[in-house]
């Protein structure tokens, strides 16, 4: 089975950790997020093309005053930028984070617009500027209901296996 490093990045409190909390198996405490800025969990995803073992790096949320450590993206097969559709400011932060990330890694980038169970506060203009970025896929998710969470990981796994074959 192939093993892939998958990173989650995004502004603070957009639901990155919640997005994967019930989806993964892990042994490390979330205290690692605040201590070294990353926590790693593991999840095996089975697709029609085979199985993939994801090592999911949950990278501490960042904002305009505090960037993330781009070294954490080294060797990643893909990464997901997560935003919160109820926080318009998270869109602007995500754009900055995206630009930092693509400078550090050429892996596939996915966009997860989280909290779709709540009303969106994002303007059309913001959404347009966000989706104009080179995301491999943009998907609307809900950490609360679990909607599209599994689909997102399955899609990434399928894409990686297709690329290898």
């Amino acid at each position: 089975m192939n093993t892939h490093k998958l990173c989650l990045i995004g502004p603070s409190a957009v639901g990155k950790t919640s997005l994967i909390r019930q989806f993964v198996e892990g042994i490390f405490s979330e205290k690692y997020l605040t201590s070294i800025g990353v926590k790693i969990d593991k999840k095996q995803v089975n697709t029609e093309l085979g199985g993939v073992l994801f090592l999911i790096w949950d990278i501490e949320g960042t904002d305009q005053f505090c960037g993330f450590n781009p070294r954490y993206l080294n060797g990643a097969s893909a990464y997901i930028v997560v935003v919160d559709q109820t926080q318009p400011s998270s869109i602007d932060d995500a754009i900055i984070i995206y630009q930092q990330a693509i400078a550090a890694s050429n892996a596939d980038v996915y966009l997860a617009i989280n909290k779709n169970d709540l009303t969106s506060q994002v303007s059309e203009q913001q959404l347009e500027s966000l989706t104009s970025l080179k995301f491999k896929r943009v998907i609307s998710t809900s950490a609360k209901t679990g909607e599209n969470v599994a689909n997102l990981f399955t899609e990434i796994a399928t894409s990686l296996l297709a690329k290898l074959s």
Partner: peptide
């Protein structure tokens, strides 16, 4: 597997 990844993160 997790230990390896975490060690790399550290």
């Amino acid at each position: 597997a997790l230990m390896s990844a975490m060690l790399t993160a550290i």
